[in-house]
Design a protein around this nucleic acid. Sequence first.
DNA 1: TTCTATTACGAGACTCGTAAGGATA
DNA 2: TATCCTTACGAGTCTCGTAATAGAA
Lengths: 169, 169
Amino acid sequence: MDVHLRELRYFVAVAEELNVTRASGRLFVSHPALSKQLRTLERQLGFPLFDRVHGGMALTRQGRALLPFARELLGRWNAGVEAARAAAPSGTLVVGMQTAVGRGIQQETLRGFRAAMPGWELSLRLVNWTDPSAGLADGGSDVAFVRPAVAWRRGDHRPQVRAFLGALP
Amino acid sequence: MDVHLRELRYFVAVAEELNVTRASGRLFVSHPALSKQLRTLERQLGFPLFDRVHGGMALTRQGRALLPFARELLGRWNAGVEAARAAAPSGTLVVGMQTAVGRGIQQETLRGFRAAMPGWELSLRLVNWTDPSAGLADGGSDVAFVRPAVAWRRGDHRPQVRAFLGALP
DNA sequence: TTCTATTACGAGACTCGTAAGGATA
DNA sequence: TATCCTTACGAGTCTCGTAATAGAA
């Protein structure tokens, strides 16, 4: 009965738009994919979340009952991740990545950073690609790989940041 | 940054056992699979949840911070599903299934049921296979497919239940 | 040796996008 | 026709189990 939080995001989006096509645009997926996910969720639950009416969707009684829980879960998960991140021991440089970086660069940079900053840790954080700042905006990342170049917080001259940038090939 | 609730279940189990092998037994998965899921979760988050110490695992500060949220999410999701299920309009027979039933049987049974019970709906609920009663125990299912035969609540003689059983090939 | 956790790898399930189908005004 | 949602299908990814690997007492 476990679900993916993504399915709940999809559910909430469709419940807000009451229109699969529009919601799919907001979620950056195709409408067939969204429609299928919705059906899968309904099948797992064993009850319908939406009635298919002309021109879109309408929440069923069950869908209306589930919706606040879906919203709550999404919010609490974000809160939990932030709380855990805040509990990180100091001495860690958090590197945000929208997508995996070529293995060679990653390894080489790691070695260089460790040589330059003994006692410090590198934490590679995989960031949701919908965040163009790769975690810099919310302060979750110290530096980040974004296309097409490496970026860092403006005016950030902490030694671990400088060491990391210096270690780049 | 979305996660599967299954990953949180895995995380909680390992946090409670502090031992991947033991936790994997409790979760009915192999230890390599569990170990890999844990690593994946840590990689997505960008921080470690456990320190690998001799004889098992130890929660990091971040892991300790995240744990209550993971428990909360799992609990709230179950509560949400129950709330939604309770909101179902009457006139629905909920059929629990531990696993998909052969398509022929399902379709044929559906037709038979609808012919026998106009105005009633069949809801096919996919139940976690760790529940041997397929939802009968918690009252979430009215009847259920379990191996090796069809079972129903003892003493249940409601007309929709009788119609469903009668519609079986 | 015995207890851990992890990596390697292949099979099956899931998830996506593009394209086609079908229902309603 | 126009606007929806859904199904079909192929490609890539995820998830699992078995088997092998690796480190610590």
